[in-house]
């Protein structure tokens, strides 16, 4: 029987040689880690710089750091447009709490509408509410035909019917038809870039005002603390109205 021999006749030398020839796994693994970290890092940098850019752009409009100066009182308003007391709401049509707040606001407007200007600003939270943006666009498109508040009420009242559907805009077309809107114009306006830009401006204002959740209320430029019930909310509003007059 032939004796097993190694190519060089020295097994330990052969093992070392083989070890030298086989590629090290460390290099590719390190390269992969480097690529992933670099890619994620660049993405994060781009994300942060785009957010910062948006903030700087809006900040440059007004250098004052107070929220009151950042918040404009333009937009969709109800109550007394000339009133000194201004209640600004940042809302999201797909948010349950905003739907509940609508009734509160309606009651307040009925009672104090002559002394209070109520402003609605869009703050669609797209991460958690997939149809919030298109709902905001529908409300804006209805607003182009002077039916913002009617669409606003309809969207909140029927939130459960459209919140989870894949093609909410087809439902909104029916609502537009119900409100007697010019459908051709509504269809054009809902996807119009100006409609989106208007919503972007509202959201930018909200980001500057540090809106963390919706609905967020600001009374005379100051954040309104959370009220436990309707009575406390009414008291806070009343205090705000009295303090400014």
């Amino acid at each position: 029987m032939p004796k097993k021999t190694s190519p060089t006749g020295n097994r330990s030398k052969d093992r070392k040689r083989l070890k030298k020839q086989s590629p090290s796994i460390l290099t590719p693994v390190l390269l992969i880690i480097f690529f992933v970290v670099a890619a994620v890092g660049v993405a994060l940098y781009l994300k942060l710089s785009s957010t910062e850019g948006v903030r700087n752009q809006t900040s440059s409009i007004n250098n004052s750091s107070t929220i009151a100066s950042v918040l404009s009182t333009n937009g969709w308003t109800k109550g007394n447009g000339e009133a000194k007391a201004v209640l600004v709401e940042f809302g999201d049509f797909q948010c349950g709490a905003c739907a509940a707040a609508r009734l509160r606001i309606s009651k307040i407007t009925e009672q104090y509408g002559s002394r209070l200007k109520v402003v609605f600003k869009q703050y669609p939270m797209q991460r958690i509410h997939r149809n919030a943006m298109i709902a905001a666009q529908a409300a804006e498109a209805a607003g182009q035909q002077f039916k913002f508040w009617e669409m606003h009420d309809l969207l909140f009242e029927r939130q459960n019917r459209w919140a989870q559907v894949p093609d909410a805009h087809t439902i909104f077309l029916k609502y537009a038809s119900e409100l007697g809107l010019d459908l051709a114009r509504f269809k054009r306006d809902i996807w119009d870039s100006k409609t989106k830009e208007k919503i972007y401006r509202d959201v930018m204002e909200g980001q500057i005002a540090q809106v963390q959740s919706v609905p967020a209320f600001f009374l005379n430029g100051k954040p309104l603390r959370n009220a436990r019930d309707d009575a406390e909310f009414e008291n806070l509003i009343l205090e705000g109205i009295q303090s400014i007059q």
């Binding site: 690529f35 992933v36 890619a39 994620v40 660049v42 993405a43 994060l44 781009l46 994300k47 785009s50 957010t51 850019g53 948006v54 669609p124 939270m125 797209q126 991460r127 943006m133 298109i134 996807w191 870039s193 989106k196 919503i199 972007y200 959201v203 930018m204």
Partner: peptide
């Protein structure tokens, strides 16, 4: 990877997405 991670990070926040050419990113 940069593209996917960027969209991924955007999806984790409520930031609006700057979309230079097509204007359809948010939709």
């Amino acid at each position: 990877m940069i593209d996917s991670a960027y969209i991924g990070f955007i999806s984790l926040t409520d930031t609006l997405i700057p979309c230079g050419l097509t204007l359809g990113c948010d939709k």
